[in-house]
Write a protein that binds this DNA or RNA. Structure first.
Lengths: 223, 223
DNA sequence: TAGATTGTTAATCGATTAACAATC
DNA sequence: TAGATTGTTAATCGATTAACAATC
């Protein structure tokens, strides 16, 4: 059905890559079947949650036996849309951009960074791994000549909004934003943020919570 | 109260850094008061949600006027625990590690990377920005001599578990894991993952959803 | 067979949103 | 004052978890 993906909860989507990594390991070890119980145990989740997640892929298991490892792998990849490779341009060839361009994991997700752009002329002509770096002024032309759907932003915060708008003008459909800046863009554009600040905020909160809990325990001890 | 932070929802925590960035901008422009309505509008949130989030900081506003910008800034920083600087060690001085070590935003969060460690002897003695790189074998000694609470993991997936266990052995309280690997660690250790795969999975799912929606619209057109 | 595991339906839990009185 | 905005209480929404029948 076309509506297949419509209703898959975001939390489930977020767990899929973890399942996928684990399943690929099992496949490489020659394992053929796996139970939700085993996956849950390995990832620190509850079996019921794993079953619910798996049911979103449309795969059915066999009671007492579990699920076929390779079927599950294919189904998750398909559900995520990772079976169709997508080209992306990278804006910003600094340290972060450079690390992203060289990251080999992307091909696993069907993401291919085909070109990088930067305002700094010292970077022009260089290659970040396999990815050539062009002047930012050539972005528009490049996107006219090459069908690219995704833009990856790895520029300083102050430039992020401007770059994003340029990408949208050039027909980019989705933006993966690594700059610490909240972008204001038309609703039709898909924006995904990967923000160190947000991630660290959660870490900080968890640490603080733990501290508080330990403090409380100490207080209890005194009574 | 000591239990202050206990119950702040994770989604709220995740929005705090965005509020913070925006508020700092307002402060720098000399703005003294700000309404939840304005913040919501700027970030694409609903005013009520912003008010709920702000109430978690304990700050009270004035009807018709709003909230004091600098009070709000201080309260969010305090709620996140970012007013106490924390030292961290970085494991892995590759491209990603290098980018993290040089990232200037961390000081905003009260995070200070004091040393990096790597197995590759070619990296020893180098500096990533201000951060010196040592042999991984010196990690244990370093942590005995310096009180560090947070470990940042930026090594390849296959080494992540081993490195994490070593950090835990050495008394690290919290781990920020950038390796694409789910770590199995004692409950008492706080683990925060920043996983490109997870983030890209969400992007992929949103794109796919949009595609489906557009397909459905087209189908509708034919009827 | 017996028992582990699946899949479904219902209950619970937590966050978002709505409604509205209080207030500057 | 009038009206915008706050803060609280209740309703809604969505995800997780529990319960349990089906099944290999």
């Amino acid at each position: 059905m076309a509506t297949d993906n419509r209703g898959i909860p975001i939390p489930t989507i977020k767990r899929f890559p973890s399942y996928l990594r684990l399943l690929k390991g099992y496949r490489d070890e020659g394992m053929e079947m796996v139970s939700a119980t085993m996956l849950a145990d390995e990832l620190g989740l509850k079996p019921i949650q794993v079953r619910k997640d798996i049911s979103c892929t449309g795969i059915e298991g066999k009671p007492k036996v579990g699920f076929t490892v390779v079927k599950l792998i294919d189904a998750i990849i398909h559900t995520l849309g990772w079976d169709n490779a997508t080209d992306a341009v990278l804006i910003g060839a600094g340290h972060l951009g450079s690390a992203l361009a060289r990251y080999e994991g992307f091909e696993t997700y069907g993401l291919k960074i085909v070109a990088a752009f930067d305002i700094d002329q010292h970077k022009w002509g260089a290659k970040l791994g396999e990815v050539p770096v062009y002047p930012l002024t050539q972005l528009k032309q490049y996107l006219e000549e090459n069908r690219v759907n995704i833009g990856v932003i790895a520029v300083p915060a102050v430039q992020a909004q401007e770059v994003a708008e340029k990408l949208v003008e050039c027909g980019i459909l989705a933006i993966w934003n690594f700059a610490p800046k909240d972008l204001k863009l038309p609703m039709r554009v898909v924006v995904q943020r990967t923000d160190l600040a947000t991630s660290f905020a959660v870490l900080s909160a968890k640490v603080k919570r733990k501290m508080v809990k330990e403090d409380l325990l100490e207080e209890d001890d005194e009574w």
